[in-house]
Amino acid sequence: MTENRTVVLLLLLAAILPAFAGGQYVMHLLIMTFFYAMLSTSLNLIVGYVGELSLGHAAFFGLGAYASAVLSLEAGLPFFACLPVAGVVAGLAALLIGSITLRLEGHFFVLISLAFAEVLRYVVINSIDLLRGPLGYPNVPAPRLSLGGTVLADFSSKIHFYYLGLALLALTLLAAWRFARSSYGLGAIAVRENRRLARAVGIDPFRHALVAFVVGGALAGLAGSFYAHYLTFVGPEVLGFGFTLSALMMVVIGGRGTLLGPLLGAAVVGITLELLRSVNEARLSIFGILLVLAVIFLPDGLVSLAARWRRPTLEADQATAALDSPLRP
């Protein structure tokens, strides 16, 4: 079974799942998983495909969340108008920040990407008049889906958010898949694998990194908008390193540079994070260790385990190459 089919099958399973399991808490866990899967898929475009460690991803997610919250609360725009704007705002921010920072060498890019996100967070914390500072925006309204005056869904029940989240996740995956299969994804992989050689065969590293950065940023903005309207509160912590860290763990533990990896990572890490919410320090402590272990012992993530298990006769890396070739997501 190819990776694409596995992803489609998982989405279909998720679509019929509410018929069998429908508790409020289970619904919430799954909605958060969809959200994390969107966020980590968007980060994966940069970390997985281009191979640049961006530690400022929360900036784009947070900008999307803020844009959506402000537009719906201050301007009274409906969710379905806020959502695309959130994506555009985050994408433009990525274009601006990326075109400044992606020219720097890898070590410095890591630092400067984090610095940009942190400066943005401090700006928001201190913009008390304009963006309510640390108070943030409570009571972000729920979406409403109506057609010609009839309300199709008022999002008073979690099941509506469930299908909204699933649809947005499918959209995110579709975008990531098309990116990876286009010449942009191909160029990004070439740059990741061997920057000098990529240039020698005519690939402009900066341009490819920037395209991935902008697409990833815009998708993170969409995830931010969904987050804002689902949890109904947006504060400066959405711009914090915590969200970047969570998404990074999901990408790495699931499998970098694959479509399925961030999904698996979001499911495993996201659900565990939610379940262990009551013992906050212990769960983060555990995840710190897991991140270290995953990088050292499972560098290609959970996805590569599945590949090994399916083709036990082949040597591991050959199986990984055959099944999860980064060129055939």
């Binding site: 191909l186 992989i189 070439a190 694998e193 061997n194 050689l197 690939i203 190459a321 070739s325 060129l327």
Partner: peptide, 16 residues
């Protein structure tokens, strides 16, 4: 070369 990738994928990237 693109050391981690199969030979044919090396050529695919080179044909960018």
């Amino acid at each position: 070369v693109f050391a981690n990738l199969p030979v044919i994928e090396n050529l695919r990237l080179a044909s960018y």
